[in-house]
């Protein structure tokens, strides 16, 4: 997939662990882990909203688009 989730980068900047974030956002550790490792197929706006509030950032800080041909073939 061409969309990269930079959740780990924002978590490191805000110095927050996955378990703390999951409590703040209201998602399970498993679901957050799916998002962090780039395995997620889709994200709800409500989830994006909760993560942005918790990490005090913009959606653009979390999501990045790459036009990599190798990834497009996948």
């Amino acid at each position: 997939m061409a969309i990269i989730v930079n959740l780990d980068v924002m978590m490191a900047r805000r110095k927050i662990s996955l378990s703390e974030l999951s409590e703040k956002v209201g998602l399970t550790l498993a679901n957050l882990s799916v998002l962090k490792t780039g395995k997620a197929k889709a994200i709800r706006f409500s989830t994006l909203d909760a993560i942005c509030r918790a990490l005090e950032c913009q959606p653009g800080d979390l999501l990045e688009f790459t036009n990599d041909p190798m990834e497009e073939d996948e």
């Binding site: 799916v34 997620a40 197929k41």
Partner: peptide, 8 residues
């Protein structure tokens, strides 16, 4: 279902 399970 797979897509739903991988939607956070």
């Amino acid at each position: 279902q797979t897509e739903n399970e991988l939607t956070v």
